[in-house]
Computed example of a mutant assay.
Amino acid sequence: MAAPKRHGGAPKKKKGPTVGTGGHGRKALEGKGPTPKAEERTYHKAYRNKQLAERAAAKPGTGRARPVGRSAGRGKNAEEMVTGRNSVLEALRADIPAKALYMAIRIDVDDRVREVLKLAADRGLPVMETGKPELDRMTDEAIHQGLALQVPPYDYPDALETVEQTLAKASKGYINNTPLFIALDGITDPRNLGAIIRSASAFGAHAVIVPERRSVGMTASAWKTSAGAAARVPVARATNLTNTLKAMKQSGVYVIGLDGDGDVDLTGLALATEPLCIVVGSEGKGLSRLVRENCDQIVSIPIESAMESLNASMAVGITLYEVSRLRTA
């Protein structure tokens, strides 16, 4: 009897080996490999920003940003980026030295941006247009609001050379007032430094000396707080403050340290009319032991007993005023 015919359904599979594809579908199974980086995808804006940066690097001065960031040099003389519309505007108003102004492409222009561009144009400052990702990288992801100002590193003269040059000028009559210096011991706040420079300029000091290590430096904040005085009073750097003070004493400069527990009263200071270096310590720790030991006198400012101490910049300002008063008396 014949077997019944199959109607519909799946075809009956044959038993035994079957013929394969010969590897024709292997390529489809392998996939497309790892996803390319954003800057390598031609349709991505990161690719366009990379192209702009490369073109600017190949043709300096084209108005596009070259890839220079703070991370390129974080040492003693690292360049600084002032970020944010208000900060950049204030820095330009204060005439802080700058190398270039970086501005985001298609920035939302407001009154601050207009004034920034005007001030930059008045100073002949290069304005470099860049993409936001590149600006983010250059400013270490700071909130820049589309603006960043590149401040060059401060060129610190050597402390001892500055002292010797000042003493030589005084001996030849090239400067009218008696040499006067200020040394900072453990000051780390740039606003304190800026305020001290401002007082130094007001009362005729010839230089501010800062140690090379564990000390504040000339940042944009210090420049701004000095209100332009940093352009007139040099900030000199001492490799070792204690050794510098010793050398200054050997050169005929008297060294006084400011301290609330000093044994000499500032009022009527006898050494005021001599070549003088005023040393001020941090508000918290005061003068370090070695610096204190190398001072000719430890001077205190008379204040109310309820007040524990004065801010470093305020103490320097009061001392400079008294020294200036005694020198002109």
Rank of each mutant, 00 (worst) to 15 (best):
R232H: 13
I175K: 09
L147G: 07
N176R: 14
W223K: 08
V210F: 11
K169T: 02
E164D: 11
Q150D: 07
V163L: 09
A159S: 14
S171V: 03
A195Q: 09
V216Q: 00
Y174S: 04
G228C: 06
G228V: 05
S221D: 15
V151C: 08
R214A: 14
N176W: 02
S226V: 04
T219E: 08
G186P: 05
R191M: 11
R232Q: 12
H144A: 14
I209V: 15
R198A: 04
F203N: 05
I196Q: 06
G186D: 06
A183G: 13
A168G: 04
R237A: 05
A170N: 08
P190V: 01
G228K: 08
I175D: 06
T178K: 08
L245N: 08
A202K: 02
P190L: 07
G228I: 05
F181R: 07
N240Q: 07
R237Q: 14
A205P: 03
N192V: 00
G173N: 09
R214M: 12
G194H: 06
H206N: 15
L149M: 11
A236H: 03
Y156E: 12
N243G: 15
S199P: 03
T162N: 10
S221Q: 15
T242W: 01
P152C: 11
S226G: 13
E161T: 13
H144S: 14
A236F: 02
A238R: 05
S215H: 03
L147N: 09
K169R: 15
A236P: 02
E164H: 09
D189S: 03
S226Y: 06
L180W: 01
L193G: 02
I209E: 10
Q145A: 12
I143C: 02
V210M: 06
G217C: 04
Y154P: 06
T225K: 00
Y174M: 14
V163G: 01
A202H: 13
Y174G: 13
V151M: 12
A229W: 03
L147I: 12
A227V: 14
T239S: 12
G228W: 05
A200F: 10
T244E: 13
A247E: 14
R214S: 14
A207K: 01
R214C: 01
S201D: 15
G173Y: 10
Q145D: 15
D155I: 05
A170D: 07
L167S: 06
L160D: 13
L160Y: 01
I196K: 04
Q145N: 13
A207V: 00
N176V: 08
A142V: 00
P157D: 10
T219C: 06
V208H: 09
N176H: 05
A207C: 07
I187P: 02
T225M: 13
D189Q: 12
T242H: 11
V235A: 11
I182G: 10
Q165V: 02
N192H: 01
